[in-house]
């Protein structure tokens, strides 16, 4: 299990590491003519992918009847949050250059940005309470209830991505279908468990 976690840690770090290497010129191609956009898009995309991967892990455990996917859940979720937070920070610091009036206007008036920020904010309490200490303090039931926020966050995240694509909707559509399948799997699993 330890080796598995270590391997996952390295894998999840790769997209970020690759950005650093491309930015430093050690790896070709570099970051291209619009590095801010490339960094921002890459971080957001991997944040969303890791969030969806996190949601895949429990159904995978049911399917395989093995516990190891569940053991990766927290790390996957925290990596997803880290990429999403960095995606937001790159947007605010580099893309908008901390122009607060423009940032607030975008958050208030651009629905795709509003829902993106909302999705990120929903993940904040989940990241904070991801430790064993917080699990104990909240108690299993309340902790589980709180962590159901991951579903609306994922829905808003996919929507946020869907909404800013110009014409080629194939990738966001794939995530939307995957997310719908995952939600259905959960519902099915809950019903089975109750029966």
């Amino acid at each position: 299990m330890r080796a598995l976690k270590a391997a996952f840690f390295v894998l999840a770090l790769l997209p970020g590491l690759l950005l650093l290497l491309r930015g430093s010129g050690l790896v070709s191609p570099g970051l291209g003519a619009n590095p801010v956009e490339l960094i921002q898009d890459t971080l957001g995309l991997w944040g969303l992918r890791l969030l969806l991967l996190t949601l895949c892990l429990s159904p995978l455990a049911w399917l395989l009847r093995r516990p190891w996917p569940v053991a990766l859940r927290r790390m996957a979720g925290l990596f997803a949050f880290a990429y999403i937070l960095l995606h937001f920070l790159v947007w605010a610091l580099l893309d908008q250059a901390l122009d607060w009036p423009a940032i607030t206007e975008d958050i208030v008036e651009r629905p795709f940005i509003t829902i993106g920020v909302a999705a990120m904010l929903m993940l904040v309490p989940l990241a904070v309470t991801s430790t064993r200490g917080w699990q104990r303090r909240l108690g299993a039931r309340r902790w589980l209830q709180l962590h159901r926020l991951v579903y609306p966050a994922a829905i808003l995240g996919v929507w946020h991505y869907f909404w800013q694509v110009k014409a080629d909707i194939r990738e966001p559509l794939f995530y939307a279908v995957l997310l719908a399948a995952l939600l259905l799997a959960r519902l099915y699993h809950r019903r089975q468990a109750r029966l």
Partner: peptide
């Protein structure tokens, strides 16, 4: 409808140039 047209990013202006 989805983004502002008030400002633009000049390609090549650098990381911290903003818009």
């Amino acid at each position: 409808p989805r983004w502002s047209q008030a400002r633009e990013r000049r390609i090549g202006a650098g990381f911290f140039a903003g818009r």
